[in-house]
């Protein structure tokens, strides 16, 4: 994966596969602490302890289409390369939280990439059935997008409507500029 926004898309696809109806994506950039934290939290079907212990094994997958599962191992690897940390917490029947930490200015820390596109692609493809909450903090600034609130505001107009998506994309970019993620 080229950047973290693609890893995030991939980890969120796991949550969608696990039947999650609410998925939270949290990014915290803290330059003072020299740390970047990603968190993806879902209310999908979760995993028992045995399964959680196995998921970082690339040869573990519950997929029927092929025999290796790479998504989580790849993100764990990316965190390790940037002297960070990786953690999965899961409860069967409740949900799963994946956390990856990175040393912010580490030379091998992947760039964040295009979060606006990751969020738009998720809303376009699954926004009608799944609620997404995207929180992005940078130092003391932050913003949050919550599709549940947006759907209410839209009052019946589908959130995956092409024009709606365009406005959302523009607004995410504007907000990421305001909090100085994008310049």
């Amino acid at each position: 994966m080229q950047d973290l926004s693609l890893h995030i898309l991939d980890i969120v696809e796991n949550s969608i596969d696990a039947g999650a109806k609410k998925i939270e994506i949290i990014i915290k950039e803290n330059i003072k602490q020299n740390m970047l934290v990603l968190k993806i939290k879902d209310n999908g079907k979760g995993m028992d302890k045995n399964t959680v212990a196995k998921v970082l094994d690339p040869f573990y997958t519950t997929k029927k289409t092929r025999r290796v599962g790479l998504g989580l191992s790849m993100l764990a690897q990316a965190a390790k390369e940037a002297e960070g940390d990786f953690n999965i917490k899961s409860k069967k029947g409740k949900g799963t939280t994946v956390t990856a930490k990175f040393v912010y200015d580490h030379i091998d820390r992947k760039p964040i990439g295009n979060m606006a596109e990751t969020i738009i692609v998720l809303i376009a493809s699954k926004g009608m059935n799944v609620d997404f909450i995207y929180k992005h903090h940078k130092n003391s600034k932050s913003f949050v997008l919550d599709t549940k609130i947006l759907k209410k505001e839209l009052n019946g107009v589908p959130i995956n409507n092409a024009e709606v998506l365009n406005i959302l994309r523009e607004n995410i970019i504007k907000e990421l500029k305001r909090i100085e993620v994008l310049t």
Partner: peptide, 20 residues
């Protein structure tokens, strides 16, 4: 934390209703 609230959605809502 600032919530993304989108004024333009109002306009879109009406427009989409009318055209599509």
């Amino acid at each position: 934390m600032k919530k993304l609230k989108i004024g333009d959605l109002e306009k879109i809502r009406e427009k989409v209703r009318r055209t599509a």
